[in-house]
Design a protein around this nucleic acid. Sequence first.
DNA 1: CTCAATAGTTGTAGTGTGCAACTAAGTAAG
DNA 2: CTTACTTAGTTGCACACTACAACTATTGAG
Lengths: 239, 239
Amino acid sequence: MSEKPPDFTKPYSTVDLVIFTVRDDALSVLLVQRANAPDEPYPLRWALPGGYIDVDRDFDLLDCAKRKLKEKTSLVSPYLEQLGSFGDRERDPRGWSITQVYFALVPSSEIRLQAGANAIDARWFEIGSGETKVRERLAFDHERILTAAIERLRSKVEYTSLPAYLLPEEFTLSELQHIFEIVLARRLDKSGFRTRVLDAGLITKVPRVRRATNRPAQLYRLKDRSAPLVFPRTLGAKN
Amino acid sequence: MSEKPPDFTKPYSTVDLVIFTVRDDALSVLLVQRANAPDEPYPLRWALPGGYIDVDRDFDLLDCAKRKLKEKTSLVSPYLEQLGSFGDRERDPRGWSITQVYFALVPSSEIRLQAGANAIDARWFEIGSGETKVRERLAFDHERILTAAIERLRSKVEYTSLPAYLLPEEFTLSELQHIFEIVLARRLDKSGFRTRVLDAGLITKVPRVRRATNRPAQLYRLKDRSAPLVFPRTLGAKN
DNA sequence: CTCAATAGTTGTAGTGTGCAACTAAGTAAG
DNA sequence: CTTACTTAGTTGCACACTACAACTATTGAG
């Protein structure tokens, strides 16, 4: 590991979050507006929520990410996974810095936004169905990070049941399929979707139905809300 | 991003490498033995090669990883991808530290090992076909990191042509299949493997054959030695 | 009672895979 | 020169899975 003494110049380390949800049938990401302080870089620009690691409070990186997620959304245990780290000399004008990026999936129904310490506002931004396309110019290298996160989300959705975390705990198969279609930005075949999802054994029936002005729909929930949720093969094509 | 001033206590940041190769039909990983210095943690223990980020020399994380790879193996451009970061309060006795881990695939034929600054020896260790099973107790949390790297490698091999990077630039389909079988620790079907690999269009013929004491074999090479190399679906089962 | 709407199932053609046998092309030995 | 051996590469078939489309089921509204 070491080849220089530990008192060698250290880069700054932050943890940032890409928090996804689906609102009004659109995949959206949470951004915060940076403060207008004189010594803060990128004042008033929109950025991914995040901040410095608190070596006293945070035991590890995931801890730190959880803390920041809770600060922003008051949510405790949705899906949270490491996306990767981005570090170079220029991304922060204050010097060599590294950000550890985590990405989270939250159900839109259960969140109340809170702006953080250095942020003056927090808002959901829709992601253009085709590409990245948050219309704002983001602070730091967050544009690039967001693009990577979207790419990762889309590719994982092909072979996992991740989008279930974007729904409340109980959901119908139609709702699940709808969320998949939103994230993937393409239609899926109904019968294929159902057999695939059910055969994978990731969800189970709950003894309840969702009633509307038509045939009631069976409700399901994730079997294990903390498992990786991989199913074999990929998803099918358009309907 | 920020919520504490930039002069807030920073964690140590290092970059470590998991360098894989295949030697004598066994997947192997490069480890270095730590120096026996009084102020160095884990003296004489085996560890993943790596070290501190040099904020003056390294422009970004990948740069830093490339530099360290070159120092250890004198190789310049094989496969190098980010595995993830591991950071907590206890992994290094000197304090809160984060390591950015990259993993590399190199052809065993083209390497000459070099021990680094803080290492007194560098050696290849075979990975037990089933599990992790490098018999040594590794320094820091490197055991855990290595396990994660092996898992990532195996899972990516199911749907990418990554193992091609473990071979020299030109190879036969039989050699490629053999390398796949070593990494996956299971047999593959010949005809299925061939159609899959060729249909994916990731490799092209070179107008040469490999001659031995039997039927000569067509040589191939990767079409784009820097591309991600994903092919659809997963690999088949045993032969 | 009928209609509209969504839930959920069934049927079929085509494609991909697993498995195994087969052919091809060279070397080496007698 | 011929035969045997070895590895390269192909072919064929049964089976499973998928895409696509049509069908049935169950409710509320009017």
